[in-house]
Each structure stands twice: as structure tokens, then as C-alpha cells.
Design a protein around this nucleic acid. Structure first.
Lengths: 264, 264
DNA sequence: TCTCCATAATTGTCAGACAAAAAGTTGACC
DNA sequence: GGTCAACTTTTTGTCTGACAATTATGGAGA
């Protein structure tokens, strides 16, 4: 399929025309849909760069503005990305980050509570730990070890410790080698863990957190699935208890000082 | 903040100008960002309708094309939606459906395997069942009961049964009253369960599936958290065993005959 | 008050324009 | 031959103005 010389690209034009003239679908959506299909089908392989707006417009028989709107759609879907400094659009697979950003706004606007996020994490994190115990490689272990070492050093710096806690759990997820697992938990974790800065600050619970991390690391590095799950269960449970002890409302929405999502 | 009479909306204009003239950010992104902030901050409340493109353009001091591109961004983020038949754009909270659509493409392009999805489900679904046992209301139970009844009627229709299976698990998730839980599992389920049409077809496992659904329903309706979790564990485990028995490769990517994602 | 129609507003699309940034080309120079 | 700077062409981001088709709105008439 040639993008450069538009003269013979009649098929696609026809497709767009048919769909858009049915008025069921605006032209920019039709274009976006066709492009998405081609990307998903591998006709436009990930890593390649998209043709220029003008050639796309020619090819589809629509105006450049229409193509641009279609591009915005695909971009937001994570199928296309423009790298800074680069001019061309690159075709990409949607990344956890973008999905995560979208889920964040969803959670914020839907008044999701800490309890709800906790329910998700208390299901996923132990499974992560267990899987990590089975699948973690040497480099994974090294990263986790390093994280624990840095946590030890930052034991009195609450905000640093929170960052490191998030990182710890992300590293576990990465060690499972399971993308789906990672994507499912990333957002929830990012929204959840910062909230417990308060808990830890009030309870001085850094040592307890570190103990759990150490135990989990040991279990994973020795391939002990059961032990990894067990300690993660406790670790997550600690959060709930800590919340109670610190007298924080577990059932309040997470709307507080949340960082504003950014547009890639 | 007045949208209609643009003459005095200088502040926003200035904001956009500063940001875009810095060249760090195209104008349409700046507009999208400002609108997103206002929505998240509740200044533009969910349910309200967005001003017309022209008044937005006036307000921000940009052209209509620019506003349109910004709108495409917000639309794809799920913060704005146009209802069919309606002309105006309504402000909305992102729904599970849209996030789910995005995750689907991510999973497809990243060659996610059945095993990986299964790992996620085997963590989340039992938790769903357990929580549902604690929180399900009468209407929730009615819906699940009805689903089971229809499944009984469709016991010989594999494709219908798959649809009903997906629905069953979605109903459980809904019964937890936990949005986060629902969003976390919806996509995974939608991608995963259809794959087992084959398994069920080969093994004639409809009865076994139905038994599990019935047991889970009973546990939930009697508030038995432990039993609900237990049967869901078995139910999910069945999938894995079924896969083995049917000699399907658990570790192959889910790229096969997947429905093409559609643009809302 | 309710219904129906003319009028106004809004959306989807297009064509053409222009400055600024990136990419591609050329040619001088080492 | 290889390198770098100047020049040209593309491409992007933005704007203006236009038009048909659809949707909203205000009144006239029942």
C-alpha cells in the first residue's frame, strides 16, 4: 500500500466515504478506525513512522484537519507517539503509563475510596509476590536488593520511603514478567501508596515496612512462593491496620492532594 | 468564568499563550490540559455540557481547529462524551469501557499470553467473589440468579454460554460495589473468557461451569465469604485444567480471532 | 399550554494560507 | 572520501473563512 502517491489509493478513500456518508461515523473517526485496524493487524508495524499528514489526507481523500483529528484520537489511544525533537509520528504499543494516567482520572472522578483500592491490591499484590518467587531472574533480584538497601538508608525520610515503597512493589510486578499483572496494579499502587505516607509518619512504621520487604525479598530469592505470598498478605494487611491505628478514614475518597495527570 | 462572551476571558488566553509560545507545548495540548484540570477540579462538573467550540476558541484565544483537536484528546481520555442525537458534548467520568478498550489494544500489541491473563484473573476473581459475598444487595443477587437461569437454558449453545460466563463474572464484580475492582478485571476478563469457548466446546464442560456458578451464587447469597472464594478458585482453576485437557497452548499470545476494538 | 415551523447556533468538513521546525541536499573545504 | 555549513523542501502547528447538515430555540398559531 503506497502512501506517497495518493492517486491510486482509491480503495481506502471509498471505505472512508461509505462509512462517513452513512453519517453513522464522522470521517475523522473512520480514518482513525482504519488506521487502528492496520496497526493492530501489523500492516503498520510498531516502530515504523506514520506517513505525513498530507499523504494520509490524500490517501483517505479527506482534508488535513480531518486527518489531524484522527491522529489525536490514535495518539491518545497510545497507538502513536511523537518523540520530543522528532517530527515524525512513531507507531507504538500503548504503554502502562498512558493507561495508568487514564485510570487515575477515572478513579479520581469516581470518588474511589482507599478501601476500594486496598481491596484490589490485597488481591493482586500477594499474587505478584508469589509469581515473582517463581519467575524472578538475577537482575530482578539485584534491583529489589538495591531498593531495600536504599530504603534502609532512607528509613527516617518519610517521603523518600514512600517513593521507595512504590518502587519496591513495581519491581516485584516487573519480576513476574507479566505485563498484564503490571498494568493491572500500577495505577492502583500509585494512587494508594502515597496515601500511607501519613500512616507511616504517624506510626513510625518504617521498620515494620522494611521488615516485610526484607522477608518478601528473601522468599522470592529462595523461590519460596508460599512464603512470599504470606508476607505480602501481612504487608498489605499492615496498611489497613495502620490506617485504623492512625485514625484515618479508610472509606474516604482519594481526592486529596493528588498530582494532576499530564498529557504525554 | 464566562464562556459565552469571550471579550473578557483574557486570563485563560494568557495562560495558553505563555505555555504554547514557550514551544514546550502545542496550543491544542495546552487547551486540553487546562480543560482537563478544570474538569478534575470540579469547576466543570460531570454531567454539565461543554460550551460550543466557538466560545471555547474565543475564550482561549485560539482557532476552532485547535479547540477541536483539544476536544479529541479529552474525548479519548473519557472526560467528554457526545451522546448520539445530541449536539453538545457532555462532561463525564471515564468509564471502564473506554479504559478497557485501551488496555485491550495494549494487551494485543504486547503479545500477552493466556497464562498471563489467567494469573491476573486467578488473583482478582476470588477476591471479587469474596467481597461480593459481603456486599451484594438483593438486586445484585436477582441479576446473578437470572444469569444462571439463562445459562441453564443455553447449556448447549457454546457461544451464548461464553457471553453469559463473561456476564456472570461482570455481575459479580458489579456486586462488590467496587469500581476499582471492576475496572481492574473487566478487560482481562473480556479478553480471556472468549478464548475458552474452545475449551468448553471440546470438553463439553458446560455443566461443570454451571455447577461452579451455582455454588458461587449460593455462597454469595448466603454471605459466605470463604465458600465464595473457594469455589471461584476452583472455577478459575478449571480453566487452566481445561486448557491442558483440550491441549491448547496456555502460553500462546491472545492475538487470534479477537474482535477489533471500536472507537466510542 | 402544547405543537409546529422559521431562524439561529453548532458540528463536521473542507480549502488554502503562513511561520517555524525538521529533514534532506548541495557544495565547499579538509 | 568524509565533514560541516548553507540552502531548499517537507512537515507540523496554527489560523481564517467557508458551507452543508444537523440540532436547538423562540414564537405563532391551535
Amino acid at each position: 500500500m503506497t502512501w506517497q502517491n495518493a492517486s491510486e489509493g482509491k480503495d481506502a478513500v471509498a471505505t472512508i466515504r461509505v462509512e462517513s456518508r452513512d453519517r453513522t461515523l464522522p470521517a475523522f473517526r473512520a480514518v482513525a478506525r482504519v488506521l487502528e485496524r492496520r496497526i493492530l493487524a501489523g500492516e503498520l508495524p510498531v516502530g515504523e513512522s506514520l506517513p505525513s499528514e498530507l499523504s494520509l489526507a490524500d490517501h483517505f481523500g479527506v482534508s488535513r484537519s480531518t486527518v489531524r483529528e484522527a491522529i489525536r484520537v490514535l495518539e491518545q489511544r497510545g497507538l502513536i507517539r511523537r518523540e520530543k525533537g522528532r517530527n515524525r509520528l512513531r507507531i507504538t504499543a500503548p504503554q502502562a503509563k498512558e493507561i495508568s494516567a487514564q485510570m487515575k482520572t477515572a478513579f479520581l472522578l469516581q470518588e474511589t475510596t482507599f478501601e476500594q483500592l486496598w481491596e484490589v491490591l490485597s488481591a493482586i499484590e500477594p499474587a505478584c509476590a508469589a509469581t515473582a518467587a517463581l519467575k524472578a531472574t538475577e537482575p530482578d533480584l539485584k534491583l529489589i536488593e538495591d531498593n531495600i538497601r536504599r530504603s534502609e538508608a532512607a528509613i527516617d525520610d518519610v517521603s523518600a520511603l514512600v517513593e521507595l515503597d512504590i518502587e519496591f512493589h513495581n519491581l516485584l510486578a516487573a519480576a513476574t514478567g507479566n505485563n498484564a499483572l503490571q498494568m493491572s496494579r500500577e495505577t492502583v499502587g500509585e494512587l494508594f501508596y502515597p496515601a500511607f505516607a501519613k500512616v507511616m509518619a504517624r506510626l513510625n512504621a518504617g521498620e515494620r515496612l522494611l521488615l516485610a520487604h526484607r522477608k518478601i525479598y528473601e522468599a522470592i530469592s529462595s523461590g519460596n512462593e508460599r512464603e512470599a505470598r504470606l508476607w505480602m498478605d501481612r504487608h498489605i494487611g499492615d496498611f489497613q491496620r495502620g490506617c485504623d491505628l492512625a485514625n484515618l478514614d479508610f472509606r474516604s475518597p482519594i481526592s486529596g492532594a493528588m498530582p494532576v495527570a499530564n498529557h504525554g
